[in-house]
Design a protein around this nucleic acid. Structure first.
Length: 268
DNA sequence: ATGGTAGTCTTACTA
């Protein structure tokens, strides 16, 4: 019998620059597992000693020099559960880990997709759409699996009207366009995923996990989007006891533009 | 109002 698992996902926007803020998240939230995106560090320079000093003895990471990069930090033993490339581009946007009870955690950093929401004019948007199609194909292969599955990360899509500050004003803005929202729904359906954050914080409530650096006053404008997600398979979803978004982290000194999102999962 | 800010491979690229 193990204790309840506390899982955090956070686009940290440079791990090395924000080791101190990671320490603050760890101190305040006491997570057992932390999934990071945009670590922006290649594997040779991963700050393993600093991460270990925060209490994470079990760490998996894959990075690119200066861009992308994902990591799974764990206080409990984990083993690698595979990784691959998505959408035909070889960058570090996926890593997965298996815990001792068999639960597999997949950590994703979906491409932001650039500014123009047209795959014919914007190769970054085309890559984002192909990435989502690959996630759908993959989901179909794991949907029947009885292994407890968790999928987290910066999916760079805000699917619900209450996931954005203005549904109408963002319909043509990459992250909330109908083509992306439709494709994310296909990913979710194919993999039989449950959005467990919205299971706890119901869709009638506005909820954001990202606020642009470009606002004069991010809190006053509050023009946020919910880009960071935690999904589980249907069997695991009833074991999710709580979900929260650590909005305060956006107001810390030299913050990431994303804030941590967290759930607690009961043992089987 | 087609800007604005932040981080890194820094005078260019990504987000």
């Amino acid at each position: 019998m193990t204790d309840r698992l506390r899982l955090v996902t956070w686009n940290i926007n440079s791990l090395r620059l924000r080791l101190g803020l990671l320490g603050r998240v760890v101190e305040e939230a006491r997570p057992d597992v932390v999934c990071l995106q945009e670590t922006k560090v290649d594997d040779a320079n991963f700050p393993m000693e600093a991460v270990r000093a925060l209490g994470f003895e079990h760490v998996l990471y894959r990075g690119d020099k200066g861009y992308n990069g994902v990591a799974i930090l764990s206080k409990r033993p984990i083993e690698p559960a595979g990784h691959r490339f998505w959408g035909g581009v070889e960058d570090a946007r996926h890593i997965s880990a298996r815990l001792a009870d068999g639960m597999v955690v997949h950590n994703f950093y979906v491409p932001a997709g650039g500014d123009i929401p047209d795959p014919a004019l914007n190769v970054k948007f085309a890559h984002k759409l192909r990435f989502l199609d690959d996630l759908t194909d993959w989901g179909a292969t794991v949907a029947g699996d009885t292994t407890p599955r968790v999928m987290v990360g910066d999916l760079n899509i805000a699917p619900l009207e209450t996931d954005v500050w203005s549904h109408k004003q963002l319909l043509k803005v990459v992250s909330h366009t109908p083509v992306e929202v439709d494709k994310l729904a296909r990913v979710q359906a194919a993999g039989a995923w449950t959005d467990v954050v919205r299971q706890v914080i119901t869709p009638d409530i506005k909820l954001y996990s990202w606020w642009s650096y470009r606002a004069r006053d991010w809190a006053a404008a509050d023009r946020g989007r919910r880009l960071d997600h935690i999904w589980t398979d249907g069997g695991l979803a009833p074991r999710v006891r709580g979900a929260s978004v650590l909005k305060d982290a956006r107001g810390w000194t030299q913050p990431s533009d994303h804030v941590p999102v967290m759930v607690d999962i009961d043992p089987a």
